[in-house]
Amino acid sequence: MEHQVFEQQGHHIVSLTGEIDLETSPAARKILLDTVDTSTKLLIDMASVTYIDSSGIAILVEAFQRAKKKGGQVAFISLNPAVVRVLSLARLDKVFSIHADMESAIHAQP
């Protein structure tokens, strides 16, 4: 798994690539939580995430909950069908803020 973190229009964007599984989720967790701690507007770009399992879902929930606690916002961008399937199995597709692209996500986070 690889990642990039950058800022755009006041939003911190974490772009993840590859598989988030038992092996890679500890690294992904650190990246997300570190960014949540320094940002109030976080967008997680998952366009290049090809696989996610329960350990990956768990860190998304943790980042989401931590951001909420400090009054921040987290949204997800460009989920591919495999990731959407797992989010829906976890019934998180109705809980998370999910957007088709970065532009709509930025508009939705004023």
Binding site: D53, I57, A58, V61, V86, L89
Partner: peptide, 18 residues
């Protein structure tokens, strides 16, 4: 419960779902 993200719980939920 689905919001129980303890290791194992969510995974078992997935297995039974799919």
């Amino acid at each position: 419960a689905f919001d129980d993200i303890r290791p194992g719980g969510l995974g078992c939920h997935f297995m039974r779902q799919v």
